[in-house]
Design a protein around this nucleic acid. Structure first.
Lengths: 158, 158
DNA sequence: GAAGAATTACTCGGATAGCCGGTGTCCGAGTCACCTGGG
DNA sequence: CCCAGGTGACTCGGACACCGGCTATCCGAGTAATTCTTC
């Protein structure tokens, strides 16, 4: 899985903690987690295209959440970075070879291998879609209440 | 996801259909699905290392199942080809930056982001582990009963 | 005709290139804040 | 003192290299069947 997924989730969490209406530039976000600035910016652009972030160009610009944390799921983040195509892609190799002896009707139904693999992938997607940014924010706040305050201080919001 | 996963599942299914104790060479398996012979052989070697296949060297050699189809899950196949490391790997970037201001105790518990991602991945693994080769064989046999016969004929077992 | 050894054909196994996508970097377009000069 | 224009700095956005892993291929090691020679 792409590295940008982890980066994106942490950055979105930071933006959820700040939440003062002012955009946060990539440089500050990158410094918070010791990440390469330009490459993180590339990932954030993907989040903008996916509608998760809103970008403000120009001086004192930056990024801010485009939706409420309750409306952003982990599935949204993964889809934005990794794309929406399934990891397992059936190439229908069952149709090849076999001397073309199999009757056409055999291929009416979906490939059973594909169905089984997609079923597992759906379970994964459902688990990701059921967890929102707000959920994680709450979970972190329960065991590390200082995280939010540190975030605001790091980004000079206090 | 690696192409070899799809290939492996179909090949293992074919071997489950033949099931006459005689090994099937890579060349015949590859011809069945119009796959590159040498590369398929490489994937099958991975299945041998994982204990799913048994290889017979020399003339009239080939591969045969090392376990009963009921004892081979899709998780086994995916692990054999893709490895056992999780797709999402937490780099603990939360520890970086932030000016090292966060108290050590904050990092005692596992990273919430990692926990959430791993939870989803576990759902995926459970779905894969719950489906065996025998299940898929049954499913295919229900809607395409000729598959088994064609397989045996293709590999010259009739 | 039978037995044994050499030969041949066949198959797995690992070592060796090619290529695509993720990773990382750099520079230009656009925007805002600040400074300066004039009224 | 107030305002307008110009200047500068800052940030996003897309275009340009680099690299590791998947993809693909080839050749050697090992084995079984076959053939030939000899008794």
């Amino acid at each position: 899985m792409n590295r940008g997924v982890e980066w994106s989730i942490h950055v979105l969490l930071s933006l959820a903690w700040v939440d003062d209406g002012k955009p946060v530039p990539t440089a500050e976000l990158a410094a918070s987690y010791a990440l390469p600035v330009a490459y993180l910016n590339k990932q954030l652009q993907a989040l903008v295209r996916a509608g998760l972030l809103h970008s403000v160009p120009g001086a004192h610009g930056g990024f801010l959440l485009a939706r409420q944390p309750e409306e952003i799921t982990l599935m949204d983040v993964v889809s934005a970075i990794e794309g929406r195509e399934p990891a397992f892609q059936c190439a229908e190799i069952r149709r090849q070879g076999m001397g073309e002896e199999a009757p056409r009707s055999s291929f009416r139904r979906r490939c059973a291998v594909d169905a089984a693999m997609q079923h597992a992938e759906v379970q994964w997607r459902k688990a990701l879609a059921s967890q929102t940014l707000a959920d994680i924010r709450t979970e972190v706040g329960r065991h590390a209440p200082s995280a939010a305050k540190i975030a605001r201080k790091t980004y000079g919001r206090d």
